[in-house]
Amino acid sequence: MDRGLGFTEMFELPVAVDLRTAARALGVHPTTAYRLIRRGQFPCPVLRLGGRYRVPTAELMRVLGIEERPLYDVDPDEDDEGPDGPHTLF
Rank of each mutant, 00 (worst) to 15 (best):
V28N: 01
L47E: 13
M10N: 04
L47P: 04
V46Y: 02
D2S: 12
G51S: 11
R24G: 04
M61F: 02
P76M: 09
P30L: 06
Y53M: 05
P43E: 06
E9S: 14
F7D: 11
A58E: 04
R69L: 14
D80R: 12
G65R: 01
F42I: 04
D75I: 08
F11H: 13
P30A: 07
E81Y: 13
P30N: 05
D80N: 10
F11I: 03
A16K: 05
L64T: 02
P56Y: 00
D77L: 14
F7C: 09
D75P: 09
D18I: 04
T88A: 13
L5A: 07
P70N: 09
C44P: 06
E9P: 12
A22I: 04
V15K: 15
L47R: 12
V15Y: 12
G51Y: 07
P14Q: 07
G4S: 14
M61K: 14
M61P: 05
M10L: 15
V55M: 01
I37H: 06
R62D: 00
G65Y: 01
V63R: 05
R24L: 02
P30V: 07
C44V: 12
M10W: 04
G82I: 08
G40Y: 05
D75Q: 07
M10K: 04
G40K: 11
P83N: 10
R62C: 00
L26Q: 01
D79Q: 11
A22G: 05
E59W: 06
T8S: 15
L26H: 05
A22K: 03
R52F: 10
G51R: 14
R3V: 08
A58L: 08
D73M: 12
L47Y: 12
V74L: 15
F7A: 14
A22Q: 01
G85C: 10
G85W: 10
E68F: 09
E59F: 05
T57H: 00
E12I: 02
G4H: 02
R62G: 00
P56Q: 01
G27D: 00
V46R: 00
G65E: 00
V28T: 03
H29F: 08
G27A: 05
L60C: 02
E9G: 10
F7W: 11
V63T: 12
L71N: 06
P70R: 15
F90C: 13
V46Q: 00
G27F: 03
G40E: 05
P70K: 14
P70I: 11
L60Y: 01
V55F: 01
R3Y: 07
D77Q: 13
V74F: 15
V63I: 03
E78C: 09
T21W: 04
H87I: 15
M61E: 02
R20P: 07
R38E: 15
E67V: 05
R69M: 09
R54M: 06
L26G: 03
L19A: 10
F11S: 10
L64N: 05
F90W: 10
D2Y: 07
H29S: 07
G40H: 06
L19P: 08
G27I: 01
D84M: 13
G82W: 11
A33W: 03
T57R: 04
L36V: 00
R54K: 14
V63S: 02
V63Y: 03
